[in-house]
Nucleic acid binder design. Structure first.
Lengths: 195, 195
DNA sequence: AGAAGGAATTAACCCAGGTTAATTTTGAGA
DNA sequence: TCTCAAAATTAACCTGGGTTAATTCCTTCT
C-alpha cells in the first residue's frame, strides 16, 4: 500500500471542504489498516483513541442491546472520517462497533496528539465543526423519519438512499437499520411485491 | 431590564466552559426579547438568522408534520444557547419552532456578523464544537431509547429527567415528546397508578 | 455433488399503541 | 361563583409489528 497516496487522500478530503488547514502541524504517524468484509474496526465497549479515515469501502455502525438485539445506527461510505466522536472525545468506551460491509482500507492517527496539534489550527476547527454539523443533520433527519414514517416508508427511503446496499447486505442488517425484525421486513417486501 | 447584566450572563455562560474567548471581538448589538408562556420565539418554517441565548425560563422545540401532528423534539432550560443550528448555518427555514413553557427572557445577536467575528477566535470555535458535541450526544441517547425502550419506560425516564416539567406542562406535550398519543399516555399513567 | 448451517419466508397468535367517540375533569375569564 | 372550552380519561375496536416455530432457500465447505 502506498502510504503517501493514502495520506494525500486524507488531506484532499479535508482540503476539498474549503478550509485552509495548515498541514505543517500534521506530523503524526499514520497507521494503515485493511479490514475485511464482516470484520470489526472496533467493537462496542472498546476504548477508541484514534481518528479513523475510511479510504475505500463501506461500513456500518452497529450497537447491541443488553438483550442481545443488534441495531444498525447508520452506514458510511468512503471517503469519510469514521469513528465514535463521543467516545474519542470523552475517552470513554464506544457505544457501538464499526463493521466492514466489504473489504476496506482504513487509515488512522492517534486522536489526542492529532487534536492537540490540530486545535492550534483554525481551519481544522472549522472543518471539525462542519463535520459535526453534517452528522448532526443526518441524525435529525433519521429522528424525524422515525417519528413520522411507517416501517414500509422507511424501507422505501432506504432503497432510495442506499441503492448499492439494498441487494448486497443481508436483510437482517437492513431490518436492524429500520429497527424492525427480519420477519417484519420480509412481510413488508412481500406486501410491496404484490402491488 | 438591565442590559449589562444580561450581557454579563451571556459571557459568563461561555467563560465557565473554560474556553478563553477574546471578548474584544464581541461588539455586536444585543437584542432583549421577553417571550411569554405559550408564545413562540420563532415558528417552524421561519428563517432564523440570530443566535439566541435563553437567560431565564424553559422552552420546548416542536415540529409539526404535514398531517398536523406535533412532535416535541426536546426541552431546554436556561441558561443555554437555543435555536436551530442547522437553519442558522445553512440560512434555511427552521424545521421546528421554539415555544416558551413559561415566561422567558431571551437575548440574541445577529448570527452572521457574530459568527464572522467569532470564527476569528479559537476559543469560540472550540466552544462551539463543544456545544455541537453536547447536543449530538443528547440526540444519540434519545435515538437509542427510542429503539430499545417501550413508551412506558420512556415516560418513566422523562419523569426522572424533567421532574419540574412532569406536572407543569400539558400531558399532550409530554405525549408528543414520547411520540405517542395523549390517549396512550393516559393509559400508561393509569396502568402505573394501579401497581 | 452432497451435506450442513445460516438466511429468508410463511403462518398463527399476541399485544402495544392508534383511532374514534363519549364522558368527566380542570381551569381561566366574566 | 358560574360558565364554557380545552384537557384528560375511559371504552371499543383496529392494525402493525413482535414472537415463535416450521419450512424452504441459499451458500459454502468437503
Amino acid at each position: 500500500m502506498d502510504k503517501a497516496l493514502l495520506e494525500a487522500s486524507f488531506k484532499h478530503y479535508f482540503d476539498q471542504m474549503g478550509y485552509g488547514i495548515d498541514w505543517q502541524y500534521f506530523t503524526q504517524s499514520m497507521q494503515i489498516q485493511p479490514v475485511r468484509k464482516g470484520e470489526f474496526l472496533f467493537q462496542q465497549g472498546e476504548k477508541v483513541d484514534r481518528l479513523y479515515f475510511l479510504h475505500t469501502g463501506q461500513v456500518r455502525y452497529v450497537s447491541v442491546s443488553e438483550t442481545g438485539k443488534e441495531y444498525t445506527q447508520s452506514f458510511a461510505k468512503s471517503p469519510r472520517i469514521i469513528g465514535s466522536t463521543r467516545a474519542t472525545i470523552k475517552g470513554t468506551k464506544a457505544l457501538f462497533g464499526i463493521q466492514a460491509l466489504e473489504d476496506c482500507m482504513i487509515i488512522s492517527y492517534p486522536w489526542h496528539s492529532f487534536f492537540d496539534e490540530m486545535r492550534q489550527d483554525k481551519g481544522f476547527l472549522e472543518c471539525y465543526c462542519h463535520f459535526m454539523e453534517q452528522i448532526f443533520i443526518l441524525k435529525e433527519e433519521k429522528e424525524s423519519s422515525f417519528v413520522k414514517d411507517s416501517a414500509e416508508k422507511r424501507y422505501l427511503d432506504f432503497c432510495v438512499d442506499y441503492p448499492e446496499l439494498k441487494d448486497k447486505i443481508p436483510q437482517q442488517q437492513i431490518a436492524s437499520y429500520l429497527s424492525i425484525t427480519p420477519v417484519a421486513l420480509s412481510r413488508i417486501r412481500q406486501r410491496l411485491k404484490r402491488t
